[in-house]
């Protein structure tokens, strides 16, 4: 039957097969550090990081169409949780704390802003990152007399890679579970028509806040995992607003209607941004600008939308030949 009605289906054989393939793929990818510890590992860390960030971002922004620029805020909070606590608290506990603090702040922001219209939400989330960054800078320079914090650990690049890969697996499983859940269905309804959603008995505010918190918590953990890679954490590096913009671009260029959509934007763009950063460091801004334009004028539904349109055209043209 139609795949659109699959929300209640048992886990099908096909899905089991896909899960198996994914597991194998992840296992193969996980061996990467055995072959290379230099450039390829480093760019793979970036790719996996953006996969997690963009997928987490899309969990919330995909169905609600709220463009969140709070990625840098949650990421920076995660980084700072580790930077502050690394001397006294075991690292795994810090990861959990990062999730709780980021998720909690996402909850507060959600409570305050999700009743606002789209523009205000965008600007609010951007402002939030800037506000937190300024306050952290101010506190550091006035009370600790330094401009940053050292993060000394024996965590190396490959450990960061494995952690991010593990987190990616978790994000995909969480996303898949949400899509099959009442919450995921509620988000679909809200994305269609929020008024109807309310009159069907959906607490739209709580649903959105819950999803924003899940998304924020995951992004916080990414920041925490990346902290050891910084070795010296400063507010401009932890709360870098460019991350927020890049996540929006990659996720939208990939497409947010499927869980794996952002992947299609992340891989080419991480490589592109990396190359631009190396060869044309002053032109990053123009590339970001052009990418935004491309989203709006060329690929409004992302690469994913393009693929699905082509697929549809293909199936409808084959249907035409079939005289039924």
């Amino acid at each position: 039957m139609s795949r659109l009605n699959k929300i209640f289906s048992q886990i099908s054989k096909q899905e089991k097969r896909i899960a198996l393939y994914c597991a194998i793929a992840f296992a193969i990818i996980a061996t990467l550090p055995l072959f290379d510890q230099g450039f390829y590992l480093s760019i793979s860390v970036n790719i996996v990081m953006y996969i997690v960030l963009c997928t987490a971002w899309s969990l919330f922004s995909g169905p609600t169409h709220y463009i969140s620029l709070a990625t840098a805020a949650f990421y920076g909070i995660g980084t700072y949780v580790v930077a502050i606590g690394i001397k006294d608290i075991p690292y795994p506990v810090l990861l959990v704390m990062a999730a709780i603090v980021s998720g909690g702040i996402a909850g507060i922001v959600g409570l305050a802003t999700l009743r606002l219209s789209g523009v205000y939400f965008v600007v609010f989330t951007l402002g939030l990152s800037e506000l937190i960054r300024q306050i952290v800078t101010w506190v550091q320079t006035n009370f600790s007399g330094s401009s940053g914090l050292y993060v000394f650990t024996d965590i190396r690049e490959m450990h960061v890679f494995w952690q991010l890969l593990g987190l990616a697996v978790i994000v995909y499983i969480v996303g898949w579970l949400i899509n099959r859940s009442r919450l995921g269905f509620a988000m679909q309804i809200i994305g269609n028509d929020e008024t109807v959603a309310k009159h069907l008995g959906i607490n739209t505010a709580i649903s959105k806040i819950l999803l924003f918190m899940i998304s924020g918590a995951i992004i916080g953990v990414v920041g925490a995992i990346m902290a050891p890679r910084f070795s010296y954490v400063t507010p401009p590096s932890a709360f870098n607003p460019i991350i927020s913009f890049q996540v929006v671009i990659m996720a939208l260029l990939g497409g947010t209607k499927r869980l794996w959509g952002p992947l299609l934007g992340v891989i080419p763009f991480t490589i592109l941004f990396d190359q631009v950063g190396v060869y044309f460091p002053d032109q990053t801004s123009i590339v970001i600008g052009v990418a935004f334009m491309a989203i709006v004028y060329l690929l409004p539904n992302g690469v994913l939308g393009l693929i699905e349109t082509i697929k549809q055209k293909f199936t409808s043209s084959t249907k035409k030949e079939d005289p039924t």
Binding site: H65, I67, F245, D282, G289, I295
Partner: peptide, 20 residues
């Protein structure tokens, strides 16, 4: 709203890049 936000973000970064 979403489209104009994204398009003017594009404009923002392009103009900033050109000025830099």
């Amino acid at each position: 709203e979403v489209n104009s936000i994204l398009a003017t973000f594009g404009l923002l970064f392009i103009l900033k890049g050109l000025m830099k």
